[in-house]
């Protein structure tokens, strides 16, 4: 399937390591904490700590590093472009000019800003990729449902939202296959999708997406009837076959994360930020 070939975000690599066995809730909370820390970090040593942490997690979970990194490939041009933008556009009063040409002026402050932002995006991507590589989609949705449960009290339909996610995950592949089928059927009837200018190309997509949407609605209607006849009436009164259990590993993982966060926060507040 060409549409899903190069995407590692959302792919699950089954395994039996400690990281895999952690309760999905623990992993979601740890990943969220990491993301929160990443948004506060403004110095290289703190990024060094994150790098150390993520490398350790990747090592323990047995994910091939090359595989984890290959998902970054499609993002690389964006990262580089962002770095150059920061280099030339960001400046501060006391910055040293590295070089200047025509209207472009690069300062050391700009360079640091570029570095920090690229590192941030890189690590954000890394943390979420590790989460999805080591946690099954069902684990993730169960974890989310359980974590969001308190919000039910203020009237948020959390179970229904999670059910929607579960169904969406199930149908992503089906619809991707269907899209492929429609495209091939149109090509067989002589539509050349790669020819013509931008507007002509876009016009050719209408006869592809129209049947896709119509089919999606038909499927949705059939699914509703099937769910209804299996007694689905919304989240109320529903139970779960698999209940989540926190164990000793989760406690240890939580403690490690707590200590790690403390160290990173200490670095954030003691070391002079780069900009």
């Amino acid at each position: 399937m060409e549409l899903t070939k190069n995407i590692t975000l959302g792919v699950y690599l089954p395994g039996e390591t400690v990281i895999h066995r952690l309760d999905p809730r623990t992993k979601i909370v740890i990943a969220s904490l990491l993301i929160f820390l990443l948004l506060m970090i403004k110095s290289y040593p703190a990024y060094g700590m994150i790098l150390l942490f993520l490398t350790a997690v990747i090592f323990i979970s047995g994910i091939p590093i090359r595989y984890a990194l290959c998902g970054l490939k499609p993002m690389l041009p964006v990262l580089i472009l962002m770095w150059f933008f920061q280099l030339f556009l960001y400046s501060s009063p006391d910055a040293h000019v590295i070089f200047s040409w025509w209207i472009f002026t690069a300062t050391d402050a700009g360079m640091h800003m570029g570095n920090l932002i690229s590192l941030r995006v890189f690590f954000l991507f890394g943390a979420t990729t590790i989460l999805t590589l080591t946690t099954s989609m069902v684990g993730l949705t169960d974890g989310m449902e359980s974590l969001l449960n308190p919000l039910r009290k203020i009237g948020l339909p959390t179970q229904e939202l999670v059910m929607t996610m579960v169904i969406a995950l199930r149908f992503v592949l089906i619809l991707a296959e269907e899209l492929d089928k429609i495209v091939k059927a149109q090509m067989a009837r002589g539509v050349a999708f790669d020819r013509g200018n931008f507007i002509q190309k876009t016009k050719k997509l209408f006869p592809v997406f129209l049947p896709l949407f119509i089919n999606a609605f038909k499927r949705a209607e059939e699914l509703i009837v099937a769910m209804e006849s299996r007694s689905y009436t919304g989240g109320k009164g529903r139970t779960k076959m698999k209940t989540l259990h926190m164990g000793r590993v989760d406690l240890i993982a939580g403690l490690i994360m707590l200590i790690f966060s403390a160290i990173v926060i200490l670095i954030i507040f003691t070391i002079q930020p780069q900009i």
């Binding site: 099954s136 989609m137 069902v138 059910m163 579960v166 169904i167 995950l169 199930r170 699914l223 769910m227 299996r230 007694s231 689905y232 009436t233 009164g237 529903r238 139970t239 779960k240 076959m241 698999k242």
Partner: peptide, 15 residues
């Protein structure tokens, strides 16, 4: 409904 067979079979009883 679900992306895992046993989870799908459990859907009805869960309801």
């Amino acid at each position: 409904v679900s992306s895992i067979v046993e989870e799908d079979v459990a859907f009805g009883p869960e309801n």
